[in-house]
């Protein structure tokens, strides 16, 4: 994947976090609108799935950027990229599982 694709996704994930994160915050903190969102399990679940994906991508890509600026040698750059990708996928799977269990869907 070219660097521009990764960074484009980084910015898109950032915008998604602002939208879905707002819904996530309202669901947990606002007595009025929160009921509407938490009341609909599928809305809540979809929102959380997108939010978690975007957040993990944005955060881990940010960590990757900082790390490869810190250790710029080519082999480290590759290694950091793959390690971060694996961590991200594993966290996402576990996160979705925890979410499904908390909502009583599994």
């Amino acid at each position: 994947m070219r660097e521009s694709t990764k960074m484009l996704l980084h910015y898109i994930a950032g915008v998604l976090i602002v939208v879905t994160g707002l819904i996530h915050l309202l669901a947990n903190n606002d007595p009025g609108i929160g009921k509407l969102i938490t009341g609909n399990v599928y809305l809540y679940l979809t929102n959380m799935a997108i939010f978690l994906a975007a957040l993990l991508y944005h955060a881990l890509n940010g960590v990757r950027v900082i790390l490869i600026e810190l250790v710029p040698d080519m082999c480290w750059t590759k290694l950091i990229g793959w390690a971060i990708l694996l961590i991200g996928i594993a966290t996402y799977i576990v996160g979705i599982q925890v979410l499904l269990m908390a909502l009583g869907l599994v």
Binding site: R2, E3, S4, M7, I68, P72, T77
Partner: peptide, 9 residues
């Protein structure tokens, strides 16, 4: 330019 240590840093 569009590489790991190119313009996106």
């Amino acid at each position: 330019l569009d590489s790991d240590h190119g313009c996106w840093r």
